[in-house]
Simulated assay, not measured.
Amino acid sequence: MSRMILRALLCLPVLVAALAAAPSPARADALHVGLVIPQSGQFRLLGDHVREAFQVWDADNPGAFGDIVEGDDGCTPESGVDAAAAMIEAGVDIVVGFLCTESLAAALPILSNEKIPVMTLTVRADIIGEEAARLGWSFFRLAPRAGSEAEIAADAIYRFWADKPFALIEDGAISGRELVEAVRTRLEERSLKPNFVDNYRPGQATQPSLVRRLKAAGVSRVFVGGDRSDLAVIAAEAEHQGVALSFMGGDALHAPEGELPLPDGTMAVLASGVVPGPEAEAARQAFAAHDMIAEGLRIPAYAAAEIIGAAANRSDYGQTNLVDLLTGTPFSTALGPVTFDATGERQEPGFVLAILEDGKFRRLSVDDASRLTGESQ
């Protein structure tokens, strides 16, 4: 044995002792989280979902959150101002919630001035993100951006219906009209035009004249910018007249089943939290352990807790501010991968394509896509 090796062996106990005595990497500071959620009224249930999701995650991951402080989101500009002031006084590091555009828009400049970022789970309006980017607000959108709904829909139509005669119809409401127009614009950018464009009166018990117009136009596929109940009426009328039509709609199809069912095979562009994928299984099990089911805002709120918890556990927290930690970092969540860009917008679409089977929507599978692609050839 050489002297060099012998010297190394003799020094090994000293080295081990020194390593054992050396301080371990500093544990990330616990974050103080604010939840601004409806405490009463028609949206109280959604507020309960957010609270429960954070409680479930915190119970299974102790130490990441220093505390969780609640404020009331009354969905008005005044309540937004009041809640922002309460969060500042409570000394929170980040606020999650503000489920309504009015309260969020009022609170954002106040909280941003105090360098407190805000993460919304529900507000989709593109204008909020645009204003946040222009004015430098600390804004993060976990909710899907409104514009991405039309992107997913147009992509699906181009992929599955490009060689089929198809129609775009809408219910005359602002949301339906804007969605259909956005889909139409994106399709025309790809040199694909609908064979028929029309609108209809919503809330009718039957739609005979609309279906006759669809039949006369010779279409076999219909994208509907409207509610679930209206699409169900149109589908029932088409069956009554013997017109074979396949349907697709937007996120408005995520609604309770009405008097008439939607036909199986109906496609819909839905928020990813509505039809969670396999990445949500751990969250489902966590809720089940607390006798809850993964419904409503529980999965999106759980994903928010996962993101904030991951940021809290970053070893360099304390040298880097929270906004920087959240920006550009890929997070694995119950909603799937989430990455916020420099303006706080989620880079992933936030919407997925779903298909109705046995009365329930599920995510479109690879097999479904292959079958639909085959039908379009």
Score class of each variant (00 low, 15 high):
residue 184 R to Y: 04
residue 103 S to V: 12
residue 201 R to H: 10
residue 159 R to P: 00
residue 197 V to W: 03
residue 154 A to D: 03
residue 95 V to W: 03
residue 135 L to W: 04
residue 102 E to F: 11
residue 144 P to Q: 05
residue 125 A to G: 01
residue 128 I to F: 07
residue 112 S to A: 11
residue 103 S to R: 11
residue 174 I to P: 08
residue 127 I to M: 10
residue 208 P to T: 09
residue 125 A to M: 03
residue 165 P to E: 09
residue 204 Q to N: 06
residue 185 T to Y: 08
residue 130 E to T: 14
residue 111 L to F: 05
residue 114 E to W: 13
residue 91 G to I: 02
residue 113 N to P: 07
residue 186 R to P: 06
residue 187 L to W: 00
residue 134 R to H: 14
residue 147 G to R: 01
residue 107 A to F: 03
residue 183 V to L: 12
residue 128 I to K: 13
residue 201 R to Q: 10
residue 128 I to A: 12
residue 175 S to D: 07
residue 150 A to L: 09
residue 151 E to G: 05
residue 175 S to I: 04
residue 121 L to R: 01
residue 205 A to Q: 15
residue 96 V to A: 09
residue 171 D to V: 10
residue 109 P to N: 14
residue 131 E to H: 11
residue 117 P to I: 14
residue 123 V to L: 12
residue 94 I to W: 04
residue 129 G to L: 09
residue 118 V to R: 10
residue 99 L to Y: 11
residue 186 R to V: 05
residue 183 V to G: 10
residue 133 A to R: 14
residue 160 F to Y: 10
residue 171 D to A: 10
residue 185 T to P: 00
residue 194 P to L: 02
residue 131 E to F: 14
residue 193 K to R: 08
residue 152 I to V: 15
residue 192 L to N: 02
residue 136 G to K: 10
residue 163 D to C: 02
residue 173 A to G: 15
residue 149 E to W: 00
residue 126 D to T: 04
residue 180 V to A: 15
residue 202 P to E: 06
residue 185 T to Q: 03
residue 104 L to Q: 03
residue 202 P to R: 13
residue 132 A to Y: 07
residue 94 I to P: 00
residue 159 R to Y: 00
residue 91 G to E: 07
residue 155 D to R: 14
residue 173 A to M: 13
residue 147 G to E: 00
residue 131 E to V: 13
residue 203 G to P: 01
residue 112 S to R: 06
residue 154 A to E: 02
residue 130 E to H: 14
residue 160 F to M: 02
residue 102 E to L: 12
residue 195 N to H: 13
residue 103 S to C: 12
residue 151 E to Q: 08
residue 186 R to K: 15
residue 118 V to C: 15
residue 92 V to L: 06
residue 191 S to W: 02
residue 121 L to M: 05
residue 195 N to F: 08
residue 165 P to D: 10
residue 195 N to Q: 13
residue 155 D to F: 00
residue 90 A to Y: 11
residue 135 L to M: 12
residue 142 L to T: 06
residue 170 E to M: 03
residue 94 I to H: 02
residue 160 F to V: 01
residue 183 V to T: 08
residue 173 A to W: 12
residue 168 L to V: 06
residue 200 Y to M: 01
residue 115 K to G: 08
residue 174 I to L: 11
residue 192 L to F: 04
residue 103 S to N: 11
residue 143 A to L: 09
residue 134 R to W: 12
residue 108 L to V: 07
residue 97 G to Q: 00
residue 155 D to K: 15
residue 170 E to H: 11
residue 191 S to Y: 03
residue 102 E to A: 14
residue 117 P to E: 14
residue 121 L to T: 08
residue 137 W to K: 00
residue 128 I to Y: 06
residue 200 Y to C: 02
residue 124 R to Y: 01
residue 119 M to G: 04
residue 135 L to V: 07
residue 194 P to R: 00
residue 157 I to V: 13
residue 204 Q to L: 15
residue 190 R to H: 01
residue 137 W to A: 02
residue 144 P to T: 06
residue 206 T to G: 08
residue 203 G to W: 05
residue 177 R to I: 05
residue 181 E to A: 15
residue 158 Y to F: 06
residue 193 K to V: 05
residue 171 D to L: 07
residue 196 F to E: 02
residue 163 D to S: 06
residue 102 E to D: 15
residue 132 A to L: 07
residue 94 I to F: 06
residue 96 V to T: 08
residue 173 A to V: 09
residue 125 A to L: 03
residue 133 A to G: 10
residue 159 R to I: 00
residue 103 S to H: 13
residue 193 K to I: 08
residue 163 D to M: 03
residue 143 A to K: 12
residue 142 L to N: 09
residue 134 R to L: 15
residue 151 E to W: 13
